[in-house]
Amino acid sequence: MTVARGSDSISGVSTPATISDTSPILGQSVSRRSLETYLRATPSVDEVAANERAAALATRSIKRESKMHALELTIRMMDLTTLEGMDTPGKVTQLASKAIRPDPTDPTIPSVAALCVYPNMVPTASEALHGTDIHLAAVASYFPSGQAPLAVRVADTQWAQQAGADEIDMVIDRGAFLSGDFVKVYDDIVAVKEACGPAHLKVILETGELATYDNVRKASMLAMAAGADFIKTSTGKVSPASTRPVTLVMLEAIRDFEAMTGFQIGMKSAGGIRTAKDAIRYLVLVSETMGKDWMTPRMFRFGASSLLNDVLMQIRWLRSGVYQNPDYFTKD
């Protein structure tokens, strides 16, 4: 099957990729050779063009009504996150009520898409979110390093899922990926996916550690073939975290993967997205790359903690015309 691409593609011309011999997308175990053949078909990314395209889309002027719509959409797409060593059940409960009703003074503000916590906090969060439509995401598989035996990572995932998480954010083993051991990375994802059961799997590539856009693209193709439901940029623990060019590269990988296989994979940008302005720039990027159908939390998510308050401030500013003060918004 040939990879379809738009005129604005930032990737080079690819050779037709065949994945039928071993069907890696079915999540079966895969031979080193067939995986390497599959990944070799990944086109290389024009780094300059990716940066330019992301920068050009950031200059788009967004009018008032569209901005209001975009801000509300940003909230509906948000995985409200707390991933600190000092998280307590109290803080998670508090954050859950913020996820349900982000602005206590304004019931017209929608709930966020999901609450994202460490496995330990899943039972607390699950109880706090009971009876709502908000998803519960747990970072599992030895987040954020992924440097643990596979059995431990699988057990971590299973535990989180059984405790009530319906979305699992796993990390790939970047060490294995960078040393060329793609089969290990692939097998890890397959194993974790299996441990997820009915839960939705987001695979974190930690693009800040992958060094090049070519690697990002390759890791995206690998993760999608191994069974990821979403691919995600970063843990938020490494700088640089999510950037717009990296998101663009991953979105194009998703687009090409869908053209190749018919599977529609979602995208989550996380880490370093702190302002409403930045979030709107991401939305423009997603809309321009993937189309209007993607303007839904089913396909695109933001992973963020401090972004929510900035969005709330912008909404209140748009409604009142008065510049706001962060002290008037709840901390968690």
Partner: peptide, 8 residues
């Protein structure tokens, strides 16, 4: 007016 109303 903007300065006077500014919450911060």
């Amino acid at each position: 007016p903007v300065l006077s109303a500014h919450m911060d």
